[in-house]
Amino acid sequence: MTALDGIGRSELDVKESRDFALGPGPLRPRDAATLILLDHSGGETRVLMGKRASKHAFMPGKFVFPGGRTDPTDGRVKVSGALHTAVEQRIIGGTRITKTRARAIALSAIRETYEEAGLLIGTKGAFSTNHEGWHGFAEHEVQPNLEKLRFVARAITPPGRVRRYDTRFLAAWRDDVAVELPEGPTLELEELAWMSLAQARATDLPAITLSILSDLEERLKHDPDLSLDAPTPFYRMIRNRFKRDLV
């Protein structure tokens, strides 16, 4: 159990008032994806974290993983390696979204990691595209690759926020990065750093990020390769209680 499991809506509102702008927002959350990049070298697992700019209404000044909203056109980008069927089914997660939409969600995590952190995940090789947001992959000759992504968690932003997302948290390894640039082209994340899991937990994290990082740290103790069939946490509001279930 984590600190958020079973917490009431009013208590959660207070806890997250510094993470989100509260107020009437969309009834239906938008699809989004986050990528947790892990580095196993050096004998200690490290994770990539970045600080969001203070001007953002969503998690201002907080340390987060790279990620953002899904663009439907992401699903039409060519890849050198397909999403594993088990990961695809976890992304769909009992919803009515299509396999193409699931693919778009996964690809949005890779695109956002390039835009925010300057890291291009994929395979070196000629690549061309007309899709906005992917020209950097063509410029640096990196073919996006989905085959090594692993599903880590899912979280739906509770009602009462000016922005709501249905976020899938995916993981990849630093070895999957084909090109590392000094920074991302959008500069949305500041103070990018590779941290030990303990160091990451000690930063100023949104409550949901801390919970998912704690879940991941516990899982890595007995499942360092993030196996495809392991149960994963799903956070969402049910009858005014924020619940964590393993699915």
Rank of each mutant, 00 (worst) to 15 (best):
Q199G: 04
L197R: 01
A106Y: 02
V152R: 11
S211G: 06
G61T: 02
P72E: 10
I105C: 12
P60F: 01
R111M: 09
R163G: 01
F151S: 11
F127T: 00
E44W: 07
E44P: 02
I110K: 07
G61Q: 05
A230T: 10
R241E: 04
A155K: 14
A32C: 10
S41C: 07
S80F: 13
F58G: 04
E191Y: 06
Q143S: 10
D175I: 06
D74Y: 07
I105K: 06
P182K: 09
L228D: 14
A53Q: 09
E188S: 09
D19P: 08
A21G: 01
P185S: 03
P66Q: 12
H40S: 05
I110A: 10
M1Q: 14
A104V: 02
S54V: 08
Q89F: 15
A126Q: 14
I97A: 01
R244S: 11
L38E: 00
L226Y: 12
A153W: 13
E217Y: 06
D175T: 14
A207M: 03
T45M: 12
I121N: 02
A86H: 13
M195E: 05
G23I: 00
R30C: 03
V247F: 14
G67M: 11
I110Q: 07
R18V: 00
L197C: 07
E217I: 00
P182R: 13
A172M: 09
R154A: 04
A198R: 05
V179T: 10
R111P: 05
L107W: 04
A82T: 11
E190F: 02
Y165T: 11
G67R: 12
L83D: 05
P66T: 02
D13T: 00
D175W: 08
S128R: 09
A21T: 01
D74H: 06
R96Q: 10
D229C: 06
G67C: 11
L228K: 12
G25Y: 10
G43P: 04
R163V: 06
G43S: 13
R52E: 03
E190T: 03
P72L: 14
I36Q: 09
E180V: 08
A33E: 09
R174L: 14
S196A: 04
H222R: 08
K124V: 03
K243P: 02
W173S: 09
K51C: 11
G42Y: 11
F151G: 04
D74S: 09
R239W: 11
L228A: 15
M59R: 13
D166R: 13
H222I: 08
A153E: 09
F20V: 01
A86P: 05
H40F: 11
